[in-house]
Amino acid sequence: MRLMRPLLAVIALFAVWLLWGGLYKTPVLQLGIVSCVLVVWLTYRMALPDQQEHRLALLYRVPLYWLWLLWEMVVTNVQVLRLVLGPRSALSPTIVEVDASASSKFALTLLGNSITLTPGTLTINIDDTRLTAHCLTRAAAEDLRGGGMARRVAAVDPD
């Protein structure tokens, strides 16, 4: 069982190799297998991946979340576009802290990256209990404090 995950990783990497290469000669394929095994070995030597259960539900929940995030990105991009080209007095930088004590590592990463990915809000520090964000305007900080994004992330990975 312990070998299951590295083996799956090698197979996935090799599939990507086949997809990218388009050159199916024996020495190339041998090189592919060797380098895939090498990459997985190096990764495991560097740090054991965290042993959180990988639930299949994430496979469809994460893309659905991405669709919502895409829409959110459109909205905030247009807002920040105006701020960037407009007068400097429109800026009101604010630092806000979001409580994240109940999140798993995966949810914390997803939330932090989502906050950074939507312009106007930027994750500057994460510890186990809270997440500090720098916002371009007061309004963006209020939105973040409202917790809409945190709730959606929590729905993606509920534990």
Binding site: P93, V98, D99, I126, A141, R145, A150
Partner: peptide, 24 residues
């Protein structure tokens, strides 16, 4: 985060307390 830890202070910011009900 590297800039923050190095002591580069954000300018003219206002701090907001933690919100009441996030996290879930």
């Amino acid at each position: 985060n590297a800039a923050l830890l190095a002591g580069l202070k954000p300018e003219g910011v206002e701090r907001m307390p933690t919100g009441p009900e996030e996290g879930a």
